[in-house]
């Protein structure tokens, strides 16, 4: 007997993805990632000159993240989200290729129905690919919630996040099976945590293959209306 959730999904079913790329004119790269009612827009500017020259790094590019919620001002909760996302993205962007520059990633939440950090990281991956910033691989992120009855829900909605016993945001890269970023809160037994890691890895792999497909459709789509081969003239 499968225990269905409020919106009819199975425990390990993620919500369907939708994405749009290159929405903004001014930004070097932009993308919007939507999972049913959670939707985040990510805009990437970079590599550009560092605004605050005190923060300039000699050997690397500075990554700046700004997270704006859908309602209200930014609070300390958003600052924590910014730091988490910044650390996750810093591990896949090749910052040593652009020393003394800055790569700014700005998030705007359109609607928040749970799993918003994962949504933001996925949107950032698409936006970085759109901007052509060099990366070592792709990144995918997913949120899990562990309930009082020891069941695990993948990609919880806001209601499920409030009612669960503990919550975990995790990000994996395409290059290795090791965790890039993880934050869990709430009480959780160690066995359950380690048992759920392969589940989250599989879900992140699905996100990464979706991202690949989305970018491929976009790039192959535009190039095919131009020419089949391009050579550079002298």
């Amino acid at each position: 007997m499968t225990n269905t959730r409020n919106d009819g999904r199975l425990n390990n079913q993620i919500r369907a993805f939708e994405s749009e790329q290159s929405l903004l004119n001014k930004a070097d790269g932009s993308a919007r990632f939507t999972q049913n009612k959670s939707s985040v827009l990510a805009a990437v500017y970079g590599p550009i000159e560092v605004k605050n020259s005190r923060k300039q790094k000699i050997l690397k590019s500075l990554i700046e993240v700004s997270f704006t919620p859908s309602v209200g001002n930014t609070t300390y909760l958003d600052k924590e989200k910014e730091l988490l996302i910044k650390n996750a993205l810093e591990s896949i962007i090749l910052t040593t290729l652009h020393p003394r520059t800055q790569i700014s990633i700005i998030f705007q939440v359109f609607s928040d129905d749970g799993s918003i950090i994962s949504c933001a990281i996925n949107a950032a991956c698409l936006a970085l690919l759109d901007a052509g910033i060099e990366m070592q691989g792709l990144i995918g992120s997913v949120t899990l919630c562990y309930n009082h009855d020891k069941s695990i829900y993948l990609d919880p909605t806001a209601q499920e996040e409030k009612e669960c016993k503990s919550l975990s945001v995790i990000a994996y890269g395409s290059q290795s099976s090791q965790i890039i970023m993880n934050k869990t809160e709430g009480t959780l037994s160690m066995d359950l945590y380690f048992k759920s890691l392969p589940l989250s890895k599989e879900a992140c792999d699905k996100v990464i293959s979706y991202i690949k497909l989305a970018v491929k459709n976009r790039i192959m789509g535009t190039i095919s209306t131009n020419t089949t081969s391009t050579t550079i003239e002298s």
């Binding site: 591990s91 890039i180 934050k183």
Partner: peptide
């Protein structure tokens, strides 16, 4: 009870299980 109350990992390199 040896239950995880907080786990926070962030960094430039990934970490293994």
């Amino acid at each position: 009870n040896f239950e995880i109350c907080l786990l926070s990992y962030s960094g430039i390199k990934p970490i293994s299980e």
